[in-house]
């Protein structure tokens, strides 16, 4: 056996690890699922609001504003993790944030928001997940940015992390212009 042939396993191994390393450090998000709804008009919906059980009419609520739409539930642990970022966005950016409370117990959802703070200007109830289906929601939490014309500009599946938070910040400024 030639000596240099014995190095082959090491070389292969190094190449594979380098690829993994590259994948880890690039700005990449495995849950970034291309949405068929991207750059399309949002699906309008009517339901009731979480706080006052009044009607929630999406076209009225969105009303030519740039809106951040966030699907969440009190039973979802990652939602709790991302909540601080949503609060940050609501504090720093002058922007309407709509929450959509997915398959949740309204009482618990209200308790949850009281405990963690409420960044939403209004919360729509999606009791049986129909709004989520219309919006093509893959799993919660999920976040959308809708521009003033009601067109979906951004979609993120999974909790907002620091990286995504920065990206969203930039995007909001962009969409606002």
């Amino acid at each position: 056996m030639k000596n240099h042939l014995l190095k082959i396993p090491f070389i292969f191994f190094s190449i594979i690890l380098l690829i993994f390393f590259y994948l880890l450090i690039i700005e990449r998000n495995p849950t970034d699922i291309p949405s068929a709804l991207l750059n399309k008009k949002v699906q309008q919906f009517e339901t009731s609001s979480l706080f006052n059980s009044q009607k929630f009419n999406s076209s009225q609520e969105f009303d030519n504003n740039v809106v951040l739409v966030n699907f969440f539930a009190s039973w979802c642990k990652p939602c709790r993790d991302e909540h601080k970022f949503i609060k940050k966005i609501s504090e720093k950016k002058n922007l309407k944030i709509i929450g959509i409370n997915y398959k949740d117990n309204p009482k618990k959802a209200i308790e949850w928001l009281e405990k963690l703070g409420n960044p939403y200007s209004n919360v729509a109830i999606d009791r049986n997940g129909e709004i989520a289906i219309d919006w093509g929601v893959y799993g919660i939490p999920e976040t959308f940015i809708v521009d003033a014309k009601g067109i979906i500009k951004f979609r993120h599946v999974g909790p907002i992390t620091k990286k995504i938070y920065k990206k969203i910040n930039l995007l909001i400024d962009e969409v606002k212009q």
Binding site: N3, L6, K7, P9, F10, F13, S14, L17
Partner: peptide
């Protein structure tokens, strides 16, 4: 682990 063991193997 891999680097150490595979270099050892090669030599």
């Amino acid at each position: 682990l891999g680097g150490y063991s595979l270099i050892l193997f090669a030599s």
